[in-house]
Simulated scan of single mutants.
Amino acid sequence: MSLPRTGRRVLVSGASRGLGRALAHAFATNGDKVAVHYGSRAEEATATLAALPGDGHTLVGGDLSTPDGAAIVASQAAERLGGIDVLVNNAAVNTPHPPATTAYEEWVAAWRQHVDVNLLATAHLSHLAAHRMIEQGTGGRIVNIGSRGAFRGEPDHPAYGATKAAVHALGQSLAVALAPHGIGVASLAPGFFTTERVAHRLSGAEGEAIRTQSPYGRVASAEEVAAAVLWLASPESEWSAGTVLDFNGASYLRT
């Protein structure tokens, strides 16, 4: 058996709002069944679930910052969907901690939080989902949401940039390890894109500076990012395994 184009069982972490909501909607529109994961925003996640087209979708709550929490989320998603064919590691934290002005205790706490959620939760969910896919014998896809910041630096959010770079490296290691099982692993490295959380930054001088980073003179939409993820999760994307796909409107070109 091989990975189908539609009707897949998809777990999207951090899907209560923003990009996660757009991801859930893109897969549901494609005809897939989606497990909408949330950490603490149950009301927003419920609204995401209610707006999804099609049926068979489910809500899964859980704290991904602990190994046990990740195991519960993966188990519940697999049980309610009947398995897992696609995992999208979207859950992340990104709180400011500029090194020159952040107290040491706050610095340590910020790094711990970023490593636990951005990196370790991605690693744990990937391991759990991969074992499900191997048992099912139908292959699968794992797509990690990385960041342009892994390459260009994040001076006020160094732990975010560092953990996203680690996520990219993790994806490449998993791509090699899991390819013999028909599981394709890839990462997307988006630049700035608009969600309700960051919409306020797009007004005034800051917004103009952000838009001019790209020669297109704009930022991406969450729906554009979700469309790229949908392709990376498709059966046709197998040969992209191991890639880190830049998705930043030519706002940062790495060599």
Rank of each mutant, 00 (worst) to 15 (best):
L128F: 00
G217F: 11
H124I: 14
L125F: 02
V36T: 04
A169F: 09
L174N: 08
Q172K: 15
K164I: 13
V34A: 06
A159R: 12
P235N: 02
D55C: 04
H37D: 09
A150Y: 10
H37M: 10
A70D: 03
G242P: 10
V115W: 11
Y160V: 14
N248A: 01
A78Y: 01
H181P: 02
E43W: 05
T138N: 02
R112G: 11
P4C: 01
A150L: 12
L125K: 00
S173E: 13
L202A: 04
G249R: 15
W111K: 10
A189L: 14
A22I: 08
G191Y: 13
A28P: 01
V244G: 03
G39P: 06
I142M: 00
A35E: 06
S237P: 05
N90T: 00
W239P: 02
M1C: 08
A162W: 12
Y216L: 15
L11V: 04
Q76N: 03
D55F: 08
Y160N: 12
G62D: 09
T6W: 03
E208W: 00
L3Y: 06
H127G: 07
L128P: 02
S16Q: 00
N144E: 09
V143N: 03
F247Q: 07
W231M: 11
R5V: 11
H124G: 05
S147A: 13
Q136W: 08
G207F: 09
S147T: 06
E238H: 14
N94A: 11
T101S: 15
I183F: 05
P180D: 12
G217I: 11
W231N: 02
Y38R: 02
R254H: 11
T195N: 07
A15H: 07
A26T: 06
V117P: 07
A123F: 11
W111Q: 14
A233C: 07
A189E: 13
F151E: 14
E196R: 10
L178S: 07
A186V: 13
W111D: 10
G217A: 09
P96G: 01
G149H: 12
D116I: 04
A186C: 12
E106Y: 10
A226K: 09
A42L: 12
W231Q: 09
S234E: 05
G204I: 08
V93D: 08
T195W: 09
T212L: 13
T46K: 14
A110T: 14
I72N: 07
R197K: 13
W231G: 06
L202D: 00
G207R: 12
V185P: 00
T138G: 01
T212V: 10
G39T: 05
A205K: 15
S234H: 01
V86T: 09
L11H: 01
S13T: 15
A24L: 04
V12D: 00
G140K: 08
G153C: 13
D85E: 05
G82H: 01
L128K: 03
H124P: 03
